[in-house]
Structure formats: C-alpha cells, structure tokens
Amino acid sequence: MAETAWRWVAILGALALTACGKPQATASGDWRAGMKVLKMAVSGNNDDPMLVRRRGAYRDQLSKALGMPVRLYESSDYNGVIQAVSSGQIDVAQIAGGGYANVDAQVGDKVAPILTPRQAEGETGYYSALVVRADSPVKTLADMRGRSLGYIDYNSTSGYLYPRAKLRQQGIDPDTFFGKTSFAGAHTQAVMALANGQFDGTFLQASGGDPQTGFTRGPLRTMARRGLIDLKDFRVVWTVGPMPSEATVVRTDRPQAMIDAVRGAMAALPYDEPELWPEIGQLDGSALTAVNREHYKDIIELRRAELAQRRGGGRP
C-alpha cells in the first residue's frame, strides 16, 4: 500500500509540475506545438549599428512575449525577404509597402500586414525625395530631364514604385524622361554612388516629418549620424508622398495566437521601453498601429500597374 501510495504521490506531483509550468495563456491549447522557433526576416545589412540594435530589440521583445527563441534572417536585398515570406520559410517580416504589394501579388492572403508606424502628428506614411548633390546644377525636377538617375530597387516603394507612378500622373514618362537609369541596390549604396558622381540624382526614403517640417529619418540622416556623409553636401529637389509606411507582415497560416502575441508585443515596445524606442531609430512619439490589406490597396494597385507596364516593354 505504502509503495502504491508513494507511486501516486510521484504521479500527481509530476502532473502538478506539468500543470504549473504552463502559462495561463496556453489554455486554448499549446499553439507552440508545431513551432520551435519564430523566424523573422529583415532586410538591410549590419553596417548601421542602429539597425542592428533595432533588430535586437524586436528579437528580445518577441522572444520574451512568446516564450520561444526568435531567429532573425537577414537579407541584403528586398527580394530576399519577399521570397522568404512568400514561400513560407519565415513567419514574420518587416517589409516596405511596395514589397508587401509584391508578396500580395504572389500569394494573396497567405500573408497579411498587421502593424505600421503611426507618427506623432498622426501620419502613417513617408516620402520619396529626389536628391542631388549640393553642387549640382539641377534645381528642379524638370532639370533632371535627360540626366542619369539611380533607382534603389525594383521592389523599393520610395526608391522606385511610388515616384514612378507619381511622375506618370504628372504626365512624365519615367522610362524616357531620364537619360540613363540604373539600380543602386539599397539606399546606402545609392547615396554613396550619388556622392561619387555615378548618377545625377536618386530617389531616397524620407520620414519622420514632411516637406514643410523637414525630415528626421531616412538614409541621408542615418549616414550623416554615422559620420559617413555631411548633410550639407546634398539637396532635395522634389518630394512625393506620403505613401503607406513599412508593414510588419505575418504568414496567416501560422497560429492566430502567435499573430496576436506578435502584434501586441511589438506594439507595446514604445510603451514598455520608452528610452529604447528612439535609440533604435524610431521617432520619439511614434507608435505602431494595427492595419490590414486595405491600408496598402493603393500601393498594390500601383504595383499591378507597374507589372503591366513592365510586361509592355518599359525599362529599366
């Protein structure tokens, strides 16, 4: 009897430990059953310490919230992230609006945007700025006729998709207006190429303000802060926007509990860690707001039109 009783004590003890070890939130069934790690894709390289800090902050916050490791997958170009999320190799990604439009064209509602930044003044968009060297004779958009232009990437919203669409709306065909066009690959490379005189102008992302207030974020500011360039060496001659800001997107075939926790944990970061938020390159006073596909419908339409144009033989 005593031996049997102690066996029951052991069994009940084990059960109790198992029960106590599970957090309350898993009451709906352990959604982690099929997930050992959360995989998150980010684009860009490790040259910018602020970007590295930002990724680390998101990784730590999500890992803490989900109780599982978070593995970051870094891609040096836009397409790497787009293909990773479209193919389902990763669970979460941060991606520009144009990139999401590309994903949407590939896999539709298998991927959904869940968050986007909302700035202090309420904007949820950013701008594209046509930038030239300060010593350039180019003073206006019209002066760029026949001159060389560096786009960022075919999947860049501010560095390709949006300014081209807005040029067309103004009656300018971007495929014939500029003398020569090329892709720099990323904003940092575009600024360096512009500084080195490889082209006359480039479209760069600008945010954290508007054309009236000025901008506090974007590749020019980031590079200036790192001492790589001097802001005085560059000049903005034309801006367009706002366009919908980057999205945090998720695979919709993942557990809903994971999606809800990711949305909540990421959005809580500026409130949980108010001193960290500006240190990771986010504008103080900004926050993340919930979005869905509807928020990006204009960009999705622009991407469709761009694809149609491309199939029709446009360049580059």
């Binding site: 957090p23 919230a65 990711v262 909540g264």
Partner: peptide, 11 residues
C-alpha cells in the same frame, strides 16, 4: 502572464 497580456493587446 506576459503572453496573455500581449495577446490581449494584439487582439
């Protein structure tokens, strides 16, 4: 629990 708080926020 942290996860429950974040899920409630996300929802």
């Amino acid at each position: 629990p942290l996860e429950l708080r974040y899920r409630l926020i996300g929802i």
